[in-house]
Computed example of a mutant assay.
Amino acid sequence: MAVTADDLTPAEHALYLAALSNGGHLAAPPAAGPGADSGADSAALAGLLARGLFAPGAAGYAAVDPRAAGDRLAAGLRGEATRLLVRAENLPDALAPLTAAYDAAHQGPESHHVEGRDAIRHRISQLLAECQEELLTAQPGPHWAVTLEPALSQDLPLLMTGRRMRTIYQPAARRRPAVVEYAGAVTRHGSRIRLLDEPFDRTIIVDRSTAVVSARSDHGAAAFITDRATVAALVAVFERDWSRAAAVDWSATPHRAATRITGLLARGLTQGAIATRLGLSERTVAAHIARLRDRHGAQTLFQLGWRMRGEGDG
């Protein structure tokens, strides 16, 4: 690391000014006045010599013009900056063997299959961490409540760092409180979610370069595809479906969660059971129940359920 002049200590600054007041000369070694710390003066002198602000002379030390010292220090910094830039330019080549090994292990030439839900989720998490621009997802099917909580923890950081997201659901998603809660959260940060009332396949496309599709009907295996022509064809299918899908104002639908909670409370379910049934957090359910208690003047869940008989939607 080059020595710089922009971090002079108070002792170095004072010693340089003392030399100037003495005609630009400093006796050797520095004289210690009453109460002075000769060790600190010696350290200050060493620092000024290292920066080129003092030069040894016949009778001690002479103060050097800071402009000349600054030019030398600046030249050293520029040289160090050049060395760092060269290292930065060479870094991809230095990591090339590791990059090739990573690609061989995770991507393969065109596609590879991953077995098991945990392994699939792990590989998708890796892809999302590498996403640079855009995530496209088509998500039919009944597995929303299981997957939305980890999805939210992955998707919000993507959106908050400028990446784009578009998702297609089927209309049944609008009746799922967990989906409504997730959609409201991500659309507030720029995600776009539409509903398509026709069959489509589960697909994830990252940066239009890697696609993930189900490889078995039970979604226990997935194909990770990097072949450009195949990925381009899947992007075209997504764009076709997106153009036919309907936009939804997800901010206008959270009341559905309260409606479902009301119905389940009237049927005698506990707070924990309701959270599990609807795929919501217990904190969300507790907040809804607190508002219902206030509305009905109930002190306990039993009282609340009794007073709400006939209001539930079954």
Rank of each mutant, 00 (worst) to 15 (best):
A94L: 15
S251F: 13
T253C: 11
L128C: 05
G116A: 04
L26G: 02
A223K: 02
T300H: 01
R123G: 00
R83P: 09
I120G: 03
G76C: 04
A252R: 10
A50D: 07
A222Y: 00
G52W: 01
L77F: 11
R176V: 13
L158M: 10
A14N: 09
D7R: 11
A245G: 10
T167G: 11
S243C: 06
E80R: 10
L128K: 08
M160W: 10
G23N: 12
F302Q: 06
E149Q: 14
A222R: 00
L304R: 06
G33P: 05
L26M: 14
D218E: 03
D197R: 05
R123E: 15
D155K: 09
Y169R: 14
V3M: 05
L159N: 03
L17T: 10
L85A: 15
P157Q: 07
A40I: 11
T4A: 15
T300G: 01
C131G: 01
I124G: 01
R291L: 05
A88I: 13
I289Q: 03
L156V: 11
T276P: 06
G70I: 06
T226V: 03
L195V: 13
A94F: 13
T262S: 09
P30S: 08
R87W: 08
R240H: 07
S111M: 06
R283G: 05
P34R: 14
R163P: 04
V3G: 07
S191L: 10
H112A: 12
R267N: 11
G70E: 11
A62T: 12
V146H: 09
S209T: 00
G263H: 08
A245P: 13
V231M: 06
A245M: 06
R51M: 06
P56S: 02
D197W: 10
H143C: 02
R260Y: 09
S281Y: 06
R188V: 12
G220P: 02
V186F: 01
P29R: 03
D7I: 04
F238V: 08
D6Y: 11
D118P: 01
G108I: 07
G279D: 09
D294I: 07
V237K: 13
I205T: 04
L264T: 05
T82H: 12
L91Q: 08
A28I: 03
G220A: 00
D201Q: 10
T167M: 14
A28P: 00
I124W: 00
A273I: 05
T230A: 01
G162D: 11
A68Q: 15
R67S: 12
E282Q: 09
D197P: 12
S217Q: 03
E149P: 03
L53N: 02
P171M: 14
L77S: 12
A172V: 05
V3K: 13
L264Q: 05
S153L: 02
A11N: 12
A286R: 09
R228A: 00
R175P: 06
